[in-house]
Computed example of a mutant assay.
Amino acid sequence: MLTYNVRGENIEVTEAIRNYVEKRISKLNKYFTDATQAIAHVNLKVYSNKDAKVEVTIPMPYITLRAEETSPDLYASIDLVTDKLERQIRKFKTKINRKSREKGFPVLSDDVPNANGEDEADNSSTDLKVVRTKRVSLKPMDSQEAVLQMDMLGHNFFIFEDAETNGTSIVYKRRDGRYGLIETDE
């Protein structure tokens, strides 16, 4: 079941806003088993032009669900991001659940599997200072499943443990729209 961590930037998170967020995102509980414990990290931000951005990240042992939406209405952004997360779960459930059953990762109901997030560092050409660090636990999977996870997260690369070689590998999206694989020698 989901628990919630709701933060606001340039906005006070009132009880009404918190209740609305929890009510809308709790509709995702139907995709989780009773044994699943996950925290929905919700970040609400209001810009000077009054647009409201809602970011939701739900990290779990084998998958990271993430979506964001911006609109002139905070409540509409909450609705849109919830719908996006639900579509994301349904879309990838059918693509990955076969492998999940084979590997025994029943984390979400109907055996929706989980994946890791990837390490992010922001480097500019003039300043090589690392401004963000993420720790990841690598999960065994094949390169096709890693590409699906990368696309689901909307990132350009994805780090994973190759299930066949037990080595660390990286899939990435090439400029031509195809995918590349980097394997390590271990």
Rank of each mutant, 00 (worst) to 15 (best):
E9N: 13
E9F: 09
E9T: 15
I11K: 11
V13W: 07
V13H: 11
T14E: 12
T14Y: 14
I17M: 10
I17S: 05
R18S: 12
R18Q: 13
N19G: 14
N19K: 13
N19P: 07
R24T: 03
I25E: 00
I25R: 00
K27H: 15
L28F: 01
N29D: 09
N29P: 02
T33A: 07
D34Q: 10
T36P: 01
Q37W: 01
A38E: 00
A40N: 03
A40W: 01
N43P: 03
N43I: 03
N43T: 12
N43W: 03
L44I: 05
K45G: 09
V46Y: 08
V46T: 15
V46G: 08
Y47S: 10
Y47R: 12
N49D: 15
D51Y: 14
E55H: 09
E55F: 05
T57L: 01
I58G: 00
P59S: 02
M60S: 06
M60T: 07
P61C: 04
Y62W: 09
L65E: 02
R66V: 01
R66S: 03
R66N: 05
A67P: 00
E68S: 11
E68Y: 06
T70H: 08
S71M: 12
P72A: 13
Y75G: 04
A76C: 11
A76K: 11
S77W: 02
L80K: 12
V81Q: 00
D83E: 08
D83T: 03
L85C: 02
E86P: 00
R87W: 07
R87C: 08
I89Y: 00
I89L: 06
R90G: 14
R90E: 13
K91D: 07
F92H: 02
F92G: 01
K93P: 04
T94N: 10
K95E: 08
R98F: 09
K99E: 02
P106W: 05
P106F: 04
V107W: 03
V107N: 06
D110Q: 15
V112H: 03
V112L: 03
V112Q: 07
P113M: 04
N114G: 02
N116G: 05
N116W: 04
G117R: 05
A121V: 15
A121C: 14
D122N: 13
S125W: 15
S125A: 14
S125Y: 15
T126V: 13
L128C: 09
L128P: 08
K129M: 13
K129D: 10
K129R: 13
V130P: 10
V130H: 12
V130N: 10
V130S: 11
R132Q: 10
R135Y: 12
V136A: 07
V136R: 03
S137N: 14
S137Y: 13
L138D: 04
L138M: 10
M141C: 02
M141K: 05
M141Q: 04
D142E: 00
E145V: 04
A146C: 05
L148T: 05
Q149D: 12
Q149W: 05
D151P: 04
L153E: 02
H155P: 07
N156I: 13
F157W: 15
F158H: 13
F158Q: 03
I159T: 09
F160C: 01
E161A: 07
E161K: 10
D162P: 03
E164S: 14
T165V: 04
G167R: 11
S169T: 03
V171H: 00
Y172E: 06
K173A: 07
R174Y: 10
R175D: 14
G177F: 12
I182E: 06
D185T: 05
